[in-house]
Simulated scan of single mutants.
Amino acid sequence: MPLVLVKPGEKNSIKRIGGRDDTKKRLETLGFVVGSPVTVVSEINGNLIVNVKDSRIAISREMANKIMV
Rank of each mutant, 00 (worst) to 15 (best):
K66N: 00
R56L: 15
N47Q: 08
N65H: 07
L5W: 09
I44C: 05
V40N: 05
I44A: 06
E28M: 04
L3V: 08
S13A: 09
K11H: 14
V4T: 11
L30D: 07
D54C: 09
D21S: 01
I59Y: 11
I49K: 15
M63C: 14
V6K: 13
F32P: 03
E10G: 15
K7H: 08
G19D: 08
N12D: 10
K53W: 05
G46W: 07
I17V: 02
L30K: 06
N12A: 09
I17L: 08
K7C: 06
V41F: 02
E10A: 14
N51W: 12
R61H: 02
G9E: 12
D22C: 04
S36D: 09
V33G: 13
I59Q: 00
V41S: 14
G35H: 13
R56T: 00
L5M: 12
P37L: 05
T29S: 14
N47D: 05
I57G: 04
V40R: 12
G31P: 03
N47M: 02
G46S: 04
P2K: 04
G18P: 15
E62Y: 12
G18E: 14
L30V: 02
P2H: 05
S36G: 00
I14W: 04
I17S: 01
V41R: 15
V50D: 07
I59L: 03
T29I: 02
R16Y: 13
E43L: 06
E62T: 00
E62D: 07
N47C: 01
P37N: 12
P8Q: 11
P37E: 15
V41I: 06
T23Q: 10
G31H: 00
E43V: 11
P37F: 03
R20A: 07
E62L: 11
R26T: 06
V34K: 13
V50T: 10
G19N: 11
K11R: 12
E28L: 04
G46Y: 10
S55I: 12
E43M: 13
V34L: 00
V40H: 11
V4W: 01
S36K: 11
I59T: 08
